[in-house]
């Protein structure tokens, strides 16, 4: 069964944010779609052109039904990403809401091993 068939009226469904202790949230506010890369496990974000990036700043910011539509496409992209979900962001891409700390750590890498996280690659 395809993802589209599974949620025929997705825009009217509550979007499930499946991890991070936040069980369910309405698609209110600005969102970014995030997942893990199938091959490396790295944190990735959905771009406007339907590809994925490791840079949160490059992610497409989405709202409302557009977010849900994009999430369906992201979920269908099984060849590249695992477990896409919507995360809350501010207008400037900064992680927001209840998952703020979790998403900040996902973005930057473990806080106790700065030398091993993604931030290390930017130094």
């Amino acid at each position: 069964m395809s993802q589209t068939e599974a949620t025929p009226r997705a825009a009217e469904q509550p979007v499930k944010i499946s991890a991070g202790g936040v069980k369910k949230a309405k698609a209110a506010g600005t969102k970014v779609i995030t997942a893990n890369d199938l091959f490396s496990g790295a944190v990735v974000y959905w771009k406007a052109d339907g590809s994925w990036t490791e840079e949160l700043d490059e992610a497409q910011i989405l709202e409302g039904p557009a977010a849900l539509d994009a999430l369906q496409r992201a979920v269908a992209d099984e060849a590249n990403a695992v477990g896409p979900y919507l995360m809350d962001v501010e207008d400037d891409h900064a992680p927001a809401g209840r998952g703020r700390l979790r998403e900040t750590i996902r973005k930057a890498g473990p806080t106790i091993h700065p030398q091993f996280g993604r931030q290390a690659q930017r130094l």
């Binding site: 893990n36 199938l38 091959f39 490396s40 496990g41 790295a42 944190v43 099984e78 060849a79 695992v82 477990g83 979790r102 750590i105 996902r106 890498g109 473990p110 996280g117 993604r118």
Partner: peptide
């Protein structure tokens, strides 16, 4: 899985049986 012949739903229990989890940043 990489070739697309297994979905993640099918693959996940198989990788877990081999000790492979997916965590925040990586496997």
């Amino acid at each position: 899985r990489i070739a697309g012949d297994l979905t993640e739903e099918e693959f996940k229990p198989l990788r877990l049986m081999n000790g492979l989890y997916l965590q925040l940043h990586a496997y």
